[in-house]
């Protein structure tokens, strides 16, 4: 399969992501520039990496959302292509309204950089298919604005649609307030859109792909994508005419 990783001014996890995909996962990957108006025709998945695009000015992701490449990312998603937003990428996807809700300043007002535990809530997605439901992953977070918020109707729609992929949990997989690092509603750490081809998550799977880094649990996200791309029977969703 082939990935593209978008580099915005201020992205700082693009190299880690390229490394994880190419050297650990052994997949093809190309860097994409925020000004690109044409995407390679053979991409399976586009990743919006972590960082501080446009210095987080105004709101995280608010400016990057208007980058020329985002038109193409939206078109790619509308066709059913897989899009994964990690950290700042998640913020960009919510600002672009490719994902519902928003990421607010952490309840503690602090930048938090540490490993957390995530419980996999559903394996019915191209981003979690290689995991097991209830599996606990140890993956780092590094953000100041990760408090997921959505209005009550939106939350109900997410729950009814089985769109919550990851929740912050204890090492035993319990969802507690103490295990919630940033005040996210319902401990939500990652979601997928209604059509299940666009995912946003605050934790950094690309930083947890080698034992040397303390955890290999992040690989499951890329292994899930590989399942979906390589095995046609996993492709349950038709290309889409419109999003949201």
């Amino acid at each position: 399969m082939k990935y593209g990783v978008v580099i915005f001014p201020g992205s700082n996890c693009d190299r880690d992501t390229l490394y994880a995909i190419e050297h650990v996962m052994g997949e093809a990957v190309v860097p994409l520039w925020h000004k690109d108006r044409v995407l390679p025709s053979d991409l399976d998945c586009i990743i919006l990496p972590g960082g501080f695009s446009y210095g987080d000015y105004l709101r995280p992701g608010a400016i990057a959302r208007f980058s020329p490449i985002m038109q193409e990312v939206k078109r790619f998603a509308d066709r059913g292509g897989y899009v994964l937003g990690i950290c700042n990428g998640f913020q960009i996807l919510t600002e672009a309204q490719l994902l519902p809700g928003a990421l607010l300043q952490n309840a503690s007002l602090r930048f938090i950089c540490r490993s957390v535990f995530l419980r996999v809530e559903t394996v019915d997605s191209p981003f979690t298919a290689a995991a097991t439901t209830g599996q606990v992953l140890r993956i780092p977070i590094a953000h100041a604005d990760g408090r997921y918020y959505i209005d009550p109707d939106g939350l109900k729609a997410l729950e009814d649609g089985d769109q919550i992929l990851f929740r912050y949990a204890t090492p035993d997989g319990e969802i507690t307030e103490a295990a919630n690092p940033n005040g996210s509603l319902g401990n939500i750490a990652g979601i997928v859109n209604r059509h299940r081809n666009v995912c946003g998550m605050m934790p950094h799977p690309e930083r947890a792909v080698e034992a040397l880094l303390g955890s290999e649990d992040g690989k499951v996200v890329f292994e899930s994508l590989r399942l979906f791309v390589q095995q046609q029977e996993y492709r349950q969703w038709e290309p889409l005419a419109s999003q949201n």
Binding site: L58, R59, A62, G101, A102, L104
Partner: peptide, 8 residues
């Protein structure tokens, strides 16, 4: 479109 995020 830009100055505010209507979601929040």
């Amino acid at each position: 479109k830009l100055l505010a995020n209507p979601v929040i």
